[in-house]
Design a protein around this nucleic acid. Structure first.
Length: 460
RNA sequence: GGCGACAUAGCCAAGCGGUAAGGCAGAGGUUUGCAAAACCUUCAUCCCCCGGUUCAAAUCCGGGUGUCGCCUCCA
């Protein structure tokens, strides 16, 4: 399979370090707030990467960090008037909750920065001893000039950067591109003891520590949003090179940004949505479909009309399952016959995770499953394959009807009212039967007259 | 100033040298008392513009135009 490697700016054949195994690391959230819908794209995409490798029989080790000490957390703590650790705990919990609701499979390891503090300090210390880092007034900086590879990931030449860039003047740095490894604590800020006095780590060291701890010195894939290429990943990589001379990861994958109505999402533009609020409005599966319907490296525009369109498109799959009564036949053995669809699906996914193309295969299968011209066993086989392949993308996690918040009495009453309507229809009293239908609709109960009789669903 | 991405039907979106996938919407039909749902059929002579390479280009090259991103915390 081919993966676009940010390092080489081209698609490369993916060769894992150990055949059959994939060591995957993706940057997780900084827990200073509920994560937003743009974060959700990244989390969801790497969830699909993980699922697809597993689908193809690879043994995946997936690590995602949680940054629970950071300037933004401190700022939020001041704003909420609670200790920083409470902010971190609150939003870590919220993250785990929302991730689950989004249908993300839990990573194998989810280490937190504060849980590896001694290791981070040891890393910085090692960098200092080998001359790649220097202390200045309680802060420690990484000397970017000390390694030749600096800039290789992001393609930036440090000297050329400085001309027009808005680099804050920091006289403690030897070089404007040098980045903070350790930050001296100001009064009242969270602090840890270190060889350089009390302080906290910079952002870029934790991922180096955690990834190497769980995945080894060099691992297969490191991922995150494009904005992390520089400086975060460049700086992670620099530390790894300084430490061992070896790359941190062989493949760097970066998902594109999410825009709102063509504009960047930001709090100042007031177009900021948390995943939590979107999940309150739309099904997790709809959000998943929305993201996967476009290639992961392209920017994606988010707006409600597009989400609604995704919801309509997704109905095709559920209609397909319904048409063969898949819940009843789910456990029956599939007769096969749709191996070519699986081949097509795999080809699409093998080409740098072309989920949009893979989804087209799913629609073909849905079409087959619904086709009244095909014999039922064949339709069921198509539905089985649809379920199988959709699962590789994380779809159809709950095929069952969503639990309706209705008690037995209500249910009986609705059925009673319907029975009166059936009588009215038998008498061709259309005025009354339509009124009953309209009135129930106003209450959120949708009636449908089908060949099998009148069925009802509750509008969600 | 430096680096990079993208421009395909009303909308979303694949395609990456061999003659335009798929979805939404629309149109027509089947079904229906009507409605909804469902199913079937249909829907780009053409891929931002101008040159070039080639037997052949949406796909490659050069030049424009436009949109967006990164270089500062950020998925």
């Amino acid at each position: 399979m081919k993966i676009y490697n940010t390092m080489s700016r081209s698609k490369e054949e993916f060769v894992p370090i150990k055949p059959g195994k994939v060591k995957l690391y993706a940057c997780g959230p900084t827990v200073y707030n509920y994560f937003h819908i743009g974060n959700a794209r990244a989390f969801l995409f790497f969830d699909v990467v993980r699922r697809y490798f597993e689908f193809r029989g690879m043994e995946v080790t997936y690590v995602q960090n949680i940054t629970d000490i950071d300037d933004k957390i401190i700022a939020q703590a001041i704003e909420e008037g609670i200790p920083f650790s409470e902010v971190a705990a609150k939003y870590t919990f919220a993250f785990l909750e929302d991730a689950k609701r989004l249908g993300l499979k839990a990573p194998h390891f989810q280490p937190r920065a504060t849980g590896v503090m001694p290791e981070i300090i040891a890393l910085i210390h090692a960098l200092q001893k080998s001359g790649h880092a220097y202390e200045a007034d309680g802060d420690v900086y990484f000397a970017t000039a000390s390694i030749s590879q600096y800039g290789s990931l992001s393609g930036k030449k440090v000297e050329e950067q400085l001309a027009g860039a808005r680099v804050a003047e920091n006289t403690k740095k030897r070089n404007a591109a040098d980045f903070t490894l350790w930050k001296r604590a100001k009064a009242g800020e969270p602090e840890w003891d270190s060889p350089w006095g009390k302080g906290r780590p910079g952002w870029h060291s934790e991922c180096v520590v955690m990834s190497r701890q769980y995945l080894g010195e060099t691992f297969d894939i490191h991922g995150g949003g494009v904005d992390l290429v520089f400086p975060h990943h460049e700086n992670e990589q620099a530390q790894a090179y300084a430490l061992t001379g070896k790359p941190l990861a062989n493949y760097w994958m970066h998902n594109g940004f999410l825009n709102i109505e063509g504009e960047k999402m930001s709090k100042s533009l007031n177009n900021f949505f948390t995943a939590r609020e979107i999940l309150a409005e739309y099904d997790a599966e709809v959000i998943r479909f929305f993201f996967l319907s476009k290639h992961y490296r392209s920017p994606i525009d988010f707006n409600r009309e597009l989400i609604a369109e995704s919801a309509r498109a997704l109905k095709n799959f559920h209609a397909a399952f319904k048409s063969v009564d898949f819940l009843q036949v789910q456990d029956s053995p599939s007769i096969g016959g749709y191996e070519s669809a699986e081949r097509e699906f795999n080809e699409a996914m093998d080409d740098d995770f072309n989920t949009a193309k893979a989804i087209a295969v799913l629609f073909e299968l849905a079409h087959q499953a619904k086709s009244a011209e095909l014999p039922m066993p064949e339709r069921i086989a198509a539905a089985h394959m649809l379920y199988h392949l959709g699962g590789a993308l994380g779809f159809f996690q709950s095929l069952e009807e969503p639990a309706q918040d209705i008690n037995h009495l209500t249910e009986d009453l609705i059925n009673l009212i319907i029975s009166y309507r059936v009588s009215a229809r038998t008498e061709k009293n259309w005025a009354l039967s339509d009124k009953i239908r309209d009135d129930l609709k106003a209450l959120g109960v949708i009636l449908s007259d089908t060949k099998e009789g009148c069925t009802w669903t509750v509008e969600t």
